[in-house]
């Protein structure tokens, strides 16, 4: 469990980091909390030539408000997310999902940005970012650009981050109105990744469900939205029956994999049950 040799750089600003990545040679990796990167390096599944550690860049850390958005620095740790008052107020779904990530030790090191950039289909935060219509702010040699979550997650462990680019912050629209949220995670033991999970945010209006946003974890190589269920819920009465019937289409358009924990058909079943439960709870039923 010893990684192959590598060069190590620890810049203190985003500009220096972009520079260091540009100069880092053929195979350069940025490191956030290292909770996904270090294990694959120790297993020698990855052997980068240079590591650019983002840990020294103060500006990448913390949560702030910008009008009707929250801005979460990429290097904000899971532990910080879980206890952040702004997130609790405006994006509680993120905190709820983050609480289910790994164990205390990992949450102290792992970061919000690292989890999104890693884009593990079994990871919990990508589906939440997708459900909340977050935007990724990316810095690269040619400046900054912003990518909506829908376009950010491209494939299995693949994002739209180009070579030389760094994820710097995540902009999350504040939920305004009567929103309820729920992250429903299904796994076998407490510290494990999701077999399937469902992130739901539901806005109620006059006994109806005005709007539902549902993100799915581990139902394909990327996080997905349960669009058919969302459509069925829009304007539906806030009743258990309506939710149950809408949840039946949660697996539409998904392409889950088969692995030790679950074969695809079982995941397709689970996602319906979990969607029903998540939406029911989020709608306060």
């Amino acid at each position: 469990m010893i990684p192959a040799p590598f060069e190590y750089v620890r810049p203190t600003t985003v500009e220096e980091a972009v520079q260091a990545v540009a100069e880092g040679g053929e195979d350069v990796k940025v490191m956030a909390g290292g909770q996904s990167l270090i294990p694959v390096m120790r297993l020698r599944l990855a052997a980068p030539e240079t590591i650019v550690d983002l840990g020294g860049i103060a500006e990448l850390r913390g949560v702030r408000e910008e009008g009707d958005h929250l801005v979460i620095g990429a290097m904000t740790t899971h532990a910080e997310v879980v206890t952040d008052p702004l997130i609790a107020q405006h994006a509680r779904l993120i905190a709820e999902a983050t609480e289910t990530v790994a164990d205390r030790q990992t949450r102290r090191r792992g970061t919000f940005g690292g989890a999104l950039a890693h884009a593990d289909p079994a990871g919990d935060l990508a589906a939440v970012a997708l459900a909340l219509d977050a935007e990724m702010v990316i810095a690269g040699p040619s400046g900054r650009r912003t990518v909506p979550a829908r376009e950010f997650f491209v494939d299995y462990l693949t994002t739209s981050l180009e070579e030389g680019e760094i994820l710097v912050e995540i902009r999350v629209p504040k939920l305004s109105g009567d929103w309820g949220v729920r992250y429903e995670k299904f796994n076998r033991v407490a510290q494990a990744w999701s077999i399937v999970a469902v992130a739901a945010a539901v806005r109620r209006e006059d006994g109806h469900i005005a709007e539902a946003r549902i993100g799915l974890t581990n139902m394909g190589p990327t996080p997905l939205r349960a669009s058919a269920t969302e459509a069925a819920l829009a304007g539906a009465p806030a009743t258990a029956d309506a939710v149950a019937s809408a949840a039946r289409s949660a697996a539409e358009g998904t392409s889950p994999s088969s692995d030790l924990n679950a074969q695809a058909d079982y995941r397709e079943h689970l996602v319906q049950v979990l969607t029903r439960r998540a939406v029911t709870a989020a709608a306060g039923l």
Binding site: S36, D120, L157, S257, A262
Partner: peptide, 19 residues
């Protein structure tokens, strides 16, 4: 029987993970 692929997590680092 269970499927014999490891879980997705960690980027599927299961079978070939041995130093």
């Amino acid at each position: 029987d269970r499927a014999t692929a490891g879980s997705n997590a960690y980027g599927g680092a299961q079978t070939e993970t041995t130093a």
